[in-house]
Amino acid sequence: MTRIGVVGTENSHVDHFVRFLNVEHRHGTARVVALAGGDSERNRVLAKTGGIETIVVSAADLGGLADAVIISSRDGRTHRVDAVPLLEAGIPVLVDKPLAASVADAEAILAAARRGGVPLVSASALRFVPETAALATAAERIGPLTAVHVTGPADPASPYAGLYFYGVHHVEAALQITGARTDASSPVHVQRTGAAVVATTRFGEVHVVLTFVPPSGPDVVPFHATVVGTRGVEAHPLTLGPDYNAPVLDRFLRAVETGTPPADDGALLAPIAVLDAITAELDR
């Protein structure tokens, strides 16, 4: 049995992981066996739902209890302190989006995975929705891409490290659609339009526009992407269905089994580098 520990249980994604593993048994004998965060009402509910017997105080307490760990904390600024000791101890880690809230922290996490010799996985679920896959092949129908525009909810004032919390979805979707992997070196121009933040840059030869719209009460702008080719335009909403976290978990458990991460260090670092550049411009 693959024993999985979870950190950051305040995140609703954890409900998905517990359902997939402990309720629906989608991955054989892999199970969530321990929750970090102490004896909270939230952890007691998760433990009852998933038949999880062990609740510990911190990520550090998962050593010896778990063969792999999911870090799902909403605030990416906490990911480095939780992930690095686990990785260095030889425990594979899935860091739920974002990998980190700075390039420095992301590089430290990547270095810890190399030292521990274990796979590190992190990805936005928007990379794997059907509409993103369709737009990633749009060049076959509308010619080489010249521009990509991704819009959706994200708040620079979020207590969970600002734009890193939800803005990572925009960036990773654009990277997936364009096929860019490590190109985060192009200049970024950022402007505020009302409450929204609009960032423009280039991924390779493709002009990229990212529009981050803070939620207004119950009204949330949906994720959406438009691609422009040399012969036409395609656009789709990027829809997160009820099982949208399943592909990320699938990738992680394959990595645990094979010992090989699904993405290299450059691909993991790229979205954080883009968000660093956007945030730096906002702070000017």
Rank of each mutant, 00 (worst) to 15 (best):
D82K: 02
L46C: 05
V118S: 06
V32G: 13
H79Q: 07
T226A: 02
D82V: 04
G76K: 13
L46Q: 09
D105G: 00
A133D: 09
F252H: 09
T49P: 00
V93N: 03
P144R: 15
H170G: 03
H236W: 10
A113D: 07
A263Y: 14
N22T: 09
T260P: 02
L269M: 12
T29A: 11
E140Y: 05
H16K: 07
K48P: 04
V129P: 12
R77I: 11
A123E: 10
L238I: 09
V274E: 07
E24T: 04
L87I: 04
P247C: 08
D105V: 04
S158H: 13
H16L: 03
Y166I: 01
V33Q: 12
R192F: 07
D82Q: 14
Y160A: 00
L110D: 06
A134R: 15
P261G: 07
A184I: 14
T211Y: 00
A157P: 02
E10W: 11
V45L: 13
R42D: 00
E205F: 01
L249Y: 04
L86C: 03
D75E: 02
G204P: 08
F165E: 00
P261D: 02
A60K: 03
F17P: 00
T29P: 05
F17N: 04
T230N: 10
P159D: 04
V209A: 13
F165W: 15
D39V: 05
A157W: 14
I272F: 08
A68N: 04
A273S: 11
T201D: 01
P153N: 06
P247L: 08
F128K: 09
D82R: 12
V188S: 03
D39R: 08
V121S: 06
V190Y: 13
G63E: 13
A174Y: 01
R141G: 00
L210K: 04
H224N: 09
A161H: 07
A47D: 01
I70Q: 06
D96V: 11
V220Q: 03
V228T: 15
T178H: 11
V118E: 04
L99D: 10
S216M: 14
T230M: 12
A225Y: 09
A280Q: 15
D219T: 15
V121T: 01
A147D: 09
E140T: 14
L94Q: 01
A113C: 12
A134G: 06
A277N: 03
E131W: 00
D75Y: 08
E234I: 10
Q191T: 13
L99R: 10
A112T: 03
V190H: 02
V6N: 11
V81D: 14
A199N: 10
D219C: 01
A225I: 06
R19P: 06
P218D: 10
L240V: 03
T146D: 10
H189S: 07
P237N: 11
T201A: 06
E281H: 05
A138E: 02
M1Y: 05
G162D: 04
A34C: 13
V129N: 09
R19Y: 08
R202W: 09
L46Y: 07
A199H: 06
D96F: 03
P215K: 05
A104F: 14
R284F: 06
L65A: 12
A161G: 07
S122C: 12
V95K: 05
R284D: 05
N11I: 10
V198E: 07
P242F: 01
P144E: 15
I177A: 03
G28C: 05
A113W: 02
R42N: 14
E281D: 12
P92V: 04
D15A: 13
A47L: 11
P85M: 08
A180K: 07
R202D: 00
